[in-house]
Amino acid sequence: MKNELIKPTALVKSANRREFLKRGTLSVATAGLLLVGCNEDEDMMPPMMGGVSLGSGDIGILNYAYALEQLEAAFYAAVLGGGYFANANAEEKTIMGDLEKHERAHREFFKAALGNMAIADLEIDFSSIDFNSRTSVLNAAKTFEDLGVAAYNGAGQFLESSDFLLIAGKIVSVEARHAAAIRDLINPGSADFAGDDLIDANGLERTLNFTQVLTAASTYVKTPIDFSQLPS
């Protein structure tokens, strides 16, 4: 996963897209972003105005987690201010209230742990989510929680510090608890809490790599994230 940048559409649009294609550096194109090799596009990409670099080594991984926790915390803060939450039943209010606190605690923990190595606050865009709609909120929550679990599970192998690995392990199982609860709210009493869409025939939950996770997150994150120095 070296030498790749995640850039929101707006930034990439200003670059010379035809040149990318001609030079073969365009590796992935999605609705939300382009992934490009950063070594070869220095001459044509705009500078990382307002972007963040996650950094390298364990710091880079912790910043990766911090970025995801920023996204989740911002999401639940918005949920609590929306029409869905105002009219939700008691159980769902409790769950959403808890998840807001948990994700805010995770976010603030990483910020404190990283100190002056922490990335800046990300600019979040939830315009695709209707916070007055139960279906929209729960589906977004499912996306974020499942994504968080897959991200931590995929990143664990790159942590060198056993202490950081343990802390990540303490958090990922809580994200999995969240994910199961949200999935059960969407389809109560079913097997979806640990569905076959996520868990394979060996009983192992999916993992996602940095590119997959940041690609998924880029729908909601406007700040460009440079993860080119993360371990691989």
Binding site: N153, G156, V172, F193
Partner: peptide, 24 residues
């Protein structure tokens, strides 16, 4: 198990499944 990326990742991938069970 962290000296083996494969075993660690497998263990983490079981770990989160157990957490989903527990939550449910």
């Amino acid at each position: 198990v962290k000296e083996s990326d494969v075993v660690l990742t497998a263990a983490l991938s079981i770990h989160s499944v157990e957490a989903r069970h527990a939550s449910m």
